[in-house]
Write a protein that binds this DNA or RNA. Structure first.
Lengths: 343, 343
DNA sequence: ATGAAAGCGCTAACAT
DNA sequence: ATGTTAGCGCTTTCAT
């Protein structure tokens, strides 16, 4: 590949020292080394343009400084920030990242995990498939593989986990809507069974709603199995029809629901925020601009990634021992025009 | 990590054969091997749950089955499809992908490239920083590193390149607008100097416009240095004011420009498509729904990634030799409501 | 059809 | 402060 002829042997001979000394230099073990030889080796290495063979080092040290990241869908805009967070933290610590997208397939997830373990990654950060049975992960853990779960959780007691405060952020959002003056709030959610993240938001909506209204919040809860445009339109029409003369808002608990909701409002010629308050997950680029800005919950996915990496590297270096950590990072509520109540 | 005690040696002893034979089995060199030993080794390996040490293999064979991908910005929604294309193709061929995002920094790009080369990746797919001076890439190429440039180009004559038909797709779009009945088309573009991709679209706009209108197309060309909302609003106002009683359309040549344009139209209470036809790059999720759907050019980024990987792997395996290939993949024009002319 | 043995390029005990 | 040496776990010639 590069001038693979130049090895540590070449350097040691050119420098007139042993391989061991060169190796010490490479690993910055300068303690018992004369400044003279250190400088000399430095020169030789630069002259030669020598670069150590990482593979040989890996074989010897049984550590690769490679972290495997498996995400459920790399195409999801928020996932990318998670990956970026991991990469950013890892880069600082001299680790590199190998990524794979399981595309919501358990089989692929399994395959990639095994393949990464075979490659001797020092640890794994996994954005698991929902309702993973985690048999494989459990086995790997027994074998001493370091694993951190990011965003989606399986079993807090078993695996280090970093996620966001879906429940409390959703509660806070609903609370905020009522306190700003809305008197009825609906939930628009994509299929609940697919994800416990969605489930948390759903539960938060129900729990918080009961503090603010006497009517059954289930009556303004709309779940969409297939995220079809028409379903949203019908649901929104229903909500409007059932809430005449009310100050109403809709909380869309996924980005897809939010986009469909905004579109339904547009098609029904409902003005945001005059006829309808709108808010939801996540802070995607378009939410800043459309409709004069849409109120959203922003999940700190970069931080989730970075914190996952932090946890993982500390486990790897045994700076962290003991039972699994469960870390819930705080989301941010971004108030925008779409929930500016106009009385 | 895993039961690293189990090596090829363990297997060979358990099976009562030599390491060489086991190695042959692992590499599927069954030609000169009795079915009996083959099956026997298979059993032993399964019983033991043995998995070969990839690092040791890499050291010996000087090949890692690892491909490095460096993108300029992993946060860019279209970039992700490129990565996915690479991963998908590589996975099929038994290669894995190591990714890094240079975040538009030449220094980071350089650092990641070197680090990947040190890791002995078998090849590199790079979505280069614009206006890269490519000195490093050139050197690496000399040293025999396989490199494919994806999306952004440097020098067709020097590097295998896979990109999209920015010029011709943009021309086609402008042509389409006029042939559908618009009589004046404006270009909204983010800063040109940052990217030759944008430059191609700009040139295409000018070239094609001259076929359809006698007025100077530069008069309806708006370039935004900073992508500020107000710049877009002012530009749009200007365009509207200068084109009374015209059937007008705007071509936004980047996703950012498109989003800002849609927002400006909204703020100025201009209806799409009644008052203004709108179209642009790229086919992001929100363009499907907002405004009843926005006409866009969809670049085949998944295919760009897959084709890049294809080219690279063929170079690696010497199935492809000779001068650099330059491949331009066709974009797709997706006509939607936003350019439905209403006379 | 299979085995023996050398060696990939590095690190780390152990010596000196 | 530096050198010697024995591997790490594979693959691959060369024998047989």
């Amino acid at each position: 590949m590069n001038d693979s002829k130049i090895t540590i042997d070449t350097v040691s001979k050119m420098a007139g020292v042993s391989k061991a000394t060169v190796s010490r230099y490479l690993n910055k073990k300068y303690e018992h080394m004369s400044e003279q030889t250190r400088l000399h080796i430095k020169d030789i290495i630069e002259d030669l343009g020598y670069r150590p063979n990482i593979i040989a080092r890996n074989l010897k040290t049984k550590t690769t400084k490679l972290i495997g990241v498996i995400v459920s869908d790399i195409t999801n805009p928020v996932t990318v920030h998670l990956i970026k967070g991991v990469m950013s933290y890892c880069a600082k610590q001299g680790y590199q990242v190998i990524t794979a997208s399981s595309d919501e397939s358990l089989e692929k997830e399994r395959e990639y995990i095994l393949s990464m373990v075979d490659r001797q990654v020092d640890g794994l950060i996994i954005n698991v498939i929902d309702y993973n049975e985690y048999g494989l992960l459990d086995t790997l853990k027994q074998d001493g593989v370091n694993i951190v779960l990011a965003d989606r959780t399986i079993n807090k007691a078993l695996f280090d986990t970093v996620t966001t405060d879906n429940y409390s952020a959703s509660k806070m959002l609903v609370e905020k809507l009522y306190s700003m003056g809305y008197d009825t709030v609906a939930l628009f959610s994509s299929d609940l069974l697919k994800s416990n993240v969605r489930l948390s938001r759903y539960k938060a909506f129900l729990a918080e709603s009961r503090f603010h209204t006497t009517s059954d919040p289930l009556r303004t809860t709309y779940i969409f199995q297939n995220d079809l445009e028409d379903e949203y339109k019908a649901a929104l029409q229903d909500f409007i029809a059932n809430t005449p003369n009310k100050r109403r808002a809709v909380f869309a608990s996924t980005p897809m629901a939010l986009l469909n909701l905004v579109n339904a409002a547009y098609e029904l010629h409902l003005n945001i925020p005059e006829d309808l308050g709108v808010c939801g997950y996540d802070n995607l680029t378009w939410t800043k601009l459309i409709g004069g800005g849409i109120t959203v919950v922003e999940q700190p996915f970069f931080d989730v990634g970075a914190e996952s990496a932090n946890l993982l590297l500390r486990r790897i270096n045994s700076e962290l021992t003991g039972p699994p950590k469960y870390i819930e990072l705080k989301s941010k509520l971004i108030l925008r025009n779409s929930t500016q109540i106009k009385s």
